[in-house]
Amino acid sequence: MPDLDRARVQDLLHQCAQTVLETMYFATVEGRQPPDGGPVPMRWVEVRFRGDPPGVFQIGLSHEAALSVAAGFMGEDPQCPENTEDVIRELANVVCGAVLSRLESDSSFELGSPRLVDGPMDETDSRVARCDLLLDCGAAAVCLRLGTVP
């Protein structure tokens, strides 16, 4: 199991998610904290990857954030964006790739297909780093677990 420098990985998750969301999804990251009032329900997408090290990446978006980033990406009315699930799967793919490219810049990795999952990984696991983000359109969270995937 690789050592995880949690603070460094949280910074990396923050930077990569912010860059991707602001460059291609036209959402603004306003801060690095959970929304006021405690946790909100999120739609989670998971990407498993092979590489050195292997692991699992997840991104969660609140309902409002999912609709808004999908609308921004597709250039559509935020009230009725088509293909929201496909858009957030691709978001997970792009953020995960950006994180791993910085984490493993001299090695190579292979991403699995992004898939919707029920909830976030267990952040009490010592191999897990999580970063909560406040967006202009809702809430998001990004998680990374390094180590062999069962």
Binding site: G97, A98, S101, S105, D106, S107, S108
Partner: peptide, 25 residues
């Protein structure tokens, strides 16, 4: 591609592709 590792970029360029654009762009 989402993969912007040096190894991948060099490998694809050596195969004959003319450019490599990393997501996000």
């Amino acid at each position: 591609s989402t993969d912007s590792t040096n190894r991948r970029i060099h490998h694809m360029l050596s195969m004959g592709v003319k450019g490599y654009l990393a997501k996000p762009f």
